[in-house]
Amino acid sequence: MSGPLHKDYAGAKLGMWLFLFTELLLFGGLFLLYAAYLARYPREFGTAGGQMHLGFGTLNTVILITSSLLVAMAVTAIQRNARRMVLWLLGGTVLCAAVFLFNKYLEWSDEIGKGIYPNSPKLVAAPPGESVFFSLYYLTVGLHGLHVLIGGTLLTLVAVRVQRGTIHAGDYVLLENGALYWHLVDLVWIFIFPLYYLIL
């Protein structure tokens, strides 16, 4: 074994950025489908988009932006070695993640209750483009929700390490990378929100 290699900060962050690119491209495939199908079914996308809950969407956008702010503050706080502060801020971020998912649960329950879900009898009978819109909506938002879950878990693990003192002012690249990941989750939502809730 090569023993503990000396830590390469720039390397660790470069690796993380590359990973974030791959995540963006993963969503990129779905956005590509969105673009192609929007061009084909502008009217159906319009009617379908009109049925979305703007309230839930807006609320969740505010929650995610706030959480991004909190995690960014956590990174500044760790540089000053304010451990308790970091823990509070990370706790706030994870709480936001949980509330976001809870809202999503309410929103989906309502939509499913109205018979809007992939392959539902209602959508099968609807004009073709509407079914495509909602399928894409469920897949994109579902994949994003999965990322919220992963990000929340990741930040919880980071918080445990801050608590234990293995992440501190002298070595916080893990927190920084966790925060980067969380910003990605936020960023993707910033595209989802207008595409599905606003512009149609």
């Binding site: 199908y37 159906e44 495509v132 399928s135």
Partner: peptide, 12 residues
Amino acid sequence: LGTGLFDPARGG
């Protein structure tokens, strides 16, 4: 899930 994204009958 039967999302129908590639199914012409459903607009895919």
